[in-house]
Amino acid sequence: MQLSDIERDAVAEIANIAIGRAADSLRKIVGHEILMSVPSVDVMTREKAAAALAKPGTRTFIAVSQSFQGPFSGRALLIFPEASSLALVRAILGREMSLEDVADIEDEALAETGNIILNSFVATMANVFKRALTMSLPSVMRGDSRQLFEAPAVADDLVLLLYINFEISQKEIRGYLALVMDLPSLETLRALVNDFLASLSAEDQEHGGTRS
């Protein structure tokens, strides 16, 4: 299954709104600016997603995972190369900590950061699609890209993969936001996206203007 260009743009737009809100929340917590952007979105199989993540020198990853339930269900994952996670935690905390100290709090800090971003993303979708979605508590997992997308999953699960760039204190950290869903859930999401697009064009016609 593939998303059309306009569907991909819509999802990216929603994601950008969501992470904009998340960035605002994080800024309030850590007291400094955190810039995030979603440059692209794609739907692919788990295998392809795993292959897309795996890069030379980046074999293991750390992910914050929350499952969501509603009109469409699945797991939302915020993924970073393991090598970037300490830097990310440090950047988020904005204070220099010793290696051990950072390692100690790494999981918890990531869990909350991921929680904020994932909550924001799912809540924004719920808001946009005007549907209720419940989110579980976050859990932190480590492993190679294949392991991240496996259990619990059914064979035909697909991945909606969003690239996400963090820029904190002049450091750029590349991560991923992934929604792992089965095909019916993804079809529902796609339908909701199209409804949303239709409502936008209806709005445009109503107001006689273009959306900026």
Binding site: S25, G70, I105, A109, A111, L133, T134, M135, L137, P138
Partner: peptide, 24 residues
Amino acid sequence: TDRLVQSVSEALDFGNSGFLSHTL
């Protein structure tokens, strides 16, 4: 911080679960 209050609101309004860590 109003993070707890916000989390409670998100839970009630959107069904979100929140995790607040002492680390942050």
